[in-house]
Design a binder for these strands. Structure first.
Lengths: 328, 328
DNA sequence: AATATTAAGGTAATCGTTTACCCAACAAGG
DNA sequence: CCTTGTTGGGTAAACGATTACCTTAATATT
C-alpha cells in the first residue's frame, strides 16, 4: 500500500493536479508557497510517483528494450553496460531479453517488450530478416547494434563495426608474418558481407587459393573453436588460424596446445572482439578491439534522441583497433 | 496506436469484460461459441494485452528487479542468466539495475524499481546494511544472493555459498601441496565471516603464523590482483597465493609471470568463482566453482514462489566444488 | 468604470485492464 | 404459478497519474 499522489495532495490540501504540475515542472501558475509546501511533503514522505500509472497515461515509459542472444556470452555484457549507462544518464531504464538465437523466442521478446510499452528497441545479432521486415511495420523506434543488416532506408538506426575489414586486416597480418596456409573458424552465416568475406578477400589479394577443407563454420563459441581446430589439425597442417571471435580463438588455442603445437611458433592465431579475458589467455591473444561499450552507448544515445527529440536515425560506423599481443 | 481490448471487444461485438475473462481463463460463464470467436479475433489481430495497464489495475507487474554491482563483471552475467531463465519460466520479467557499488546508486535503484512496481527484488553484494535495515520496512519480497548477510529473521530469503569454507579448503590445499608462506589477496570487507576468515582458520589449524605484510585487500578486480601480487612479491617471497576471486587470480598470475616466476613451480595459486575464463588462463586456474547460474535460478524460484504462493522465504546454502587445474 | 488579462489552482476525463456486481432469460422444483 | 438456480454476459468503478479546460479573484488596460 504504497503512498500515492492523492495522499500527498491531501496532506498539502491541494488537488492532485497541483502536485502533478509541481513534480513535472509545469508550475508557472503555482505560488512559491504552495510549491515549497508540496515539495516538502513529498520529501518527507519519500514519495516517488508510480511510473506504471504515468506510463499508461502519457504512453511513454522511459524504458527501452534490449534484445540480445545471451547475456552470459562475454561479449554482450559490455554492450549492455554501455546501453544501460547512457540510458540511465538520459533518464531511461532498460529491460533485457535473451533470445538464445531462437527465432520464436525473439518474436516473444518483442511482443513481451511491446506489451511493456517500451519506447524503443535495441537489437543485437538479430536473426531472421523475414521477422525483421515483418516487425518493421510496427514502427517503434529501433536500432540494431553490431550487425550491418540491410534495412533499406527503413528508419532503423545502426551502430556497427566493419568486421569484414577487421578480418581482412587480421588475415593480412598473418600473411605478412609469413603464414602460407591459413585456416578460418567462425560461425555460419548466410550474409555475404560477413567475416568470411574479409578472409577471402585477403587471400585473393595475396594469391593464396581458398581451401574449403580448412574452413570450419558453426557457432561463435569456445566449443566451435575447439572442434574446428581439432577437425582441421587432425587432417591438415596449417600455420595460421583466423578466428571469427575471441571465444573461438580461446577454444582453438586449447586444441592447438593439446596437439603439442606452439603458439605462435608453429601456428599463429588471431581473434576478434577483444573481450575482457583475451589478454589473460596464454599467450595473450592478438585480436581486434570492438568498442563494445561505446557501441552500446552510441546505440542508446541514437535511440533515445530519436524518442525524445525525433532526431533522425542514421548509420554509425565505429572504428576498430588492432590489439597486437603474442599469438602472431 | 496499438490495438487494445476495446477494439477486440468491438470486433467480436461483446464487452471488454468478456474479452478479459476469456484471456484470463475466468470464463466459466462464457459460451464456447463466444470464446472461440473472441479467441479467433485476438489471434487474427495479434493482440497482446497491455501489461502496463494490467499491472496498474491488479497491482502486480510480474516483474522482479535485480540489483547488482556491475553486469560487465564476469561473475554476474551467470547469475543474471539464471535469474532470467527461471523468472521467464515462471512468467516473470526481470529488470536489472547496476549500482557500481555506490550506496547512493543503490538507493536510487531501489526507488526506481519500486516506482516500476516490481513484485520483488533480488540483491547481490548489497553494501550498506544500514540501508538494508531501513529498506526492510518497505516489505517487498526480497532475496539476497551470494552474500550471507545477517538479516535476523526478517523474512528475507538468502541463497549463498559458504565461501569462507571454500577459502579454507583452498588454503588447506596449498598447505598440503607444501606451501609454507601463503599470501592472501582479496577485497576489503568488514564482515567477520568473509573469505579472510577461511584463510586465517586454515593457517591457524596448521600452526602457520598470520603475517599481515603478505595480505592485500582492495577490490574484486584484476587490478587488485596485479597490484597486490606486485606489492607483495617486491618485498617478500611467497610460495602460495590465495585469491579472493578469479579476477584477482588472473591479475596476480600476470604479476607473478612478469617477475619471471613459474606457476605452479615457484608459486602456487588458487582462485574462487570458476568464471567462464578460468580454464583458459595459463596455466588453467585451480579454483572453486560457485554455481552462479544455479544460485540465480534458486533465488528467482524462491522469490517468485513467495510472490505467487506466499511460500515462506528461507536460507539456501548451495554446494561449491573444487576445480583442480594446474596452478597448484 | 468597464473590460481584459493574469495568477493560482481545481475538475474530471483519460490511458487499457480487471472485477465486483448486476441483469435477463431460461430450466427445474415444489 | 412462483421461487430458485444457472448460464451468459454487461456495467461501471477502480488502479495512479496527467492535462485540457474551467473557475475565481486580483490586477491591468482603455
Amino acid at each position: 500500500m504504497s503512498i500515492t499522489m492523492k495522499h500527498i495532495a491531501e496532506l498539502a490540501q491541494v488537488s492532485t493536479a497541483t502536485v502533478s504540475k509541481i513534480i513535472n515542472g509545469r508550475d508557472e501558475h503555482i505560488s512559491q508557497a504552495t510549491r515549497e509546501k508540496v515539495l516538502a511533503i513529498i520529501e518527507e514522505n519519500n514519495f516517488q510517483p508510480n511510473t506504471v500509472a504515468k506510463g499508461l497515461r502519457i504512453k511513454k515509459t522511459n524504458t527501452i528494450g534490449f534484445v540480445l542472444p545471451d547475456i552470459s556470452n562475454p561479449f554482450f555484457p559490455e554492450i549492455a553496460r554501455g546501453i544501460e549507462d547512457m540510458a540511465n544518464k538520459m533518464g531511461f531504464a532498460v529491460v533485457f531479453c535473451n533470445t538464445d538465437n531462437d527465432a520464436k523466442r525473439e518474436q516473444e521478446c518483442v511482443s513481451f517488450l511491446q506489451s511493456k510499452m517500451v519506447d524503443g528497441l535495441i537489437f543485437t545479432r538479430s536473426l531472421s530478416k523475414s521477422f525483421f521486415e515483418n516487425y518493421l511495420s510496427r514502427n517503434i523506434p529501433t536500432v540494431i547494434v553490431d550487425r550491418n543488416i540491410d534495412t533499406a532506408a527503413s528508419g532503423i538506426g545502426k551502430v556497427y563495426i566493419d568486421t569484414p575489414a577487421a578480418v581482412y586486416d587480421m588475415t593480412k597480418l598473418l600473411i605478412e608474418k609469413g603464414c602460407k596456409r591459413i585456416a578460418f573458424i567462425s560461425a555460419m552465416s548466410t550474409s555475404s558481407k560477413d567475416r568470411f568475406g574479409g578472409y577471402r578477400r585477403a587471400l585473393e589479394e595475396n594469391s593464396i587459393p581458398l581451401d574449403d577443407s580448412i574452413v570450419y563454420r558453426e557457432h561463435y563459441s569456445v566449443e566451435t573453436g575447439y572442434k574446428g581446430a581439432e577437425t582441421i589439425l587432425s587432417a591438415h597442417t596449417v600455420d595460421g588460424i583466423v578466428c571469427g571471435n575471441d571465444l573461438i580463438a580461446a577454444g582453438a588455442m586449447q586444441a592447438v596446445r593439446q596437439r603439442g603445437l606452439s603458439i605462435p611458433d608453429d601456428v599463429k592465431l588471431v581473434g576478434l572482439d577483444n573481450i575482457y579475458f583475451s589478454k589473460f589467455l596464454y599467450p595473450p591473444l592478438t585480436t581486434v578491439e570492438q568498442p563494445a561499450y561505446e557501441m552500446g552507448m552510441a546505440a542508446a544515445r541514437m535511440l533515445i534522441n530519436n524518442i525524445l527529440h525525433k532526431e533522425p536515425m542514421f548509420e554509425q560506423k565505429l572504428e576498430y583497433k588492432m590489439i597486437l599481443r603474442e599469438t602472431v
